[in-house]
Simulated assay, not measured.
Amino acid sequence: MAQHLWRRAIGYAVLGSLLACGAAQAEDRLRAIVAYQSQYFYAKTFATFVEKLNAAGKGVVQIQVVGGPEAIPPFEQADAVRTGVVDMLYAPGTYYLGLIPEADAVAASSITPMDARADGAFEILRKPFAAKMNVEILGVVPGGVPFNIFLKEEPKIGADGVPDLTGVKLRGSPTQRDFLTQVGATFVQIPLPETYTALERGVVDGMATPIVGVMDLGWDKFLKYRIEPGVFQTDNMIYVNLDKWNALSEESRKILKQIAEEQERESYDFAQEVIQNEKAALAERGMKAIELSTEGAEKYKRIAQDAIWGRLEKNDPTYYEELRSKLDR
């Protein structure tokens, strides 16, 4: 009897070891949601990240994109990743300023995401994003793409060299609200998929948006003028639900970090090339660039920067000084 029990115990131990080994080798899987329509430049950038990650993480960690704005409206996606409805989100942080005011610092940054990471700003940002949005930030993909104001009609330029957009209805995201109103525009917030129709029907007279993607979605059919220079920079980030992140294997987390950092660098460089190509293509299609004077451009950019940093200081000053000292140069 004792020998029988001993053999059973050995059998259970072996079985337990095999199960544990199988569990250790199980592939981690993350369900991702994207804020953009699939044909948009930024959605394609994230798709490249997913492709690279799935190749490098085969057998260890994989990402499945389960939908975009058609599945969950973009401004509701932060709650989806915060609560674990999805494991991963790719979206602009400034879509969710009510939840995470520190997202403003990413858009207001005047340095590259790689420099921000090397200088420690990224580590500062991780704290509020973890506490308020329940996410780990993997990277800014791509950074360095400025926002321009695009218009149907040629803009007025004030005596100070700054555009006077009084009475002009502009579509924008929460990022640009304060800036646009300070240059006289009427801010209009509408979902990205509805922008084409809004331009077509005259609901808006233009928009503040990165140059990359304007042709992808056909907006250049209506937009004929672009104010230069651009301001801010894109703040599209890859987030992972923090509970999911902590449950991943160490190897999975290592692969995710590595591929995200690679895509951060590569997408930045690629975006700079795309920007120049887009400008040339838009010029060929008849779009005119309105170049501000040197003095006007500096005032214009400072209005933009101060609008965002001032809003962050007002909404939550906890990390304001630390972030601005590193990111506003």
Rank of each mutant, 00 (worst) to 15 (best):
T294Y: 11
T294W: 10
T294I: 14
E295M: 08
E295D: 13
E295V: 12
G296D: 09
G296V: 04
G296Q: 05
A297S: 08
A297M: 07
A297W: 03
E298I: 07
E298W: 05
E298P: 08
E298H: 06
K299I: 03
Y300I: 09
R302S: 03
R302D: 11
I303Q: 05
I303C: 01
I303T: 07
A304H: 02
A304V: 05
Q305W: 06
D306V: 03
D306C: 07
A307P: 08
I308S: 13
I308D: 12
I308G: 01
G310L: 09
G310Y: 01
R311E: 08
R311M: 11
R311K: 12
L312T: 04
L312A: 07
L312S: 00
L312F: 03
E313G: 15
N315S: 14
N315L: 15
N315K: 14
N315H: 04
D316Q: 03
D316S: 05
D316P: 00
D316F: 06
D316W: 06
P317H: 02
T318D: 02
T318R: 02
Y319P: 05
Y319G: 01
Y319Q: 02
Y319W: 10
Y320C: 11
Y320H: 03
Y320N: 11
Y320T: 09
E321G: 11
E322S: 14
E322T: 00
E322F: 07
L323H: 06
L323S: 00
R324T: 14
S325W: 02
S325E: 15
K326P: 11
L327A: 03
L327R: 02
L327F: 05
D328G: 00
D328N: 15
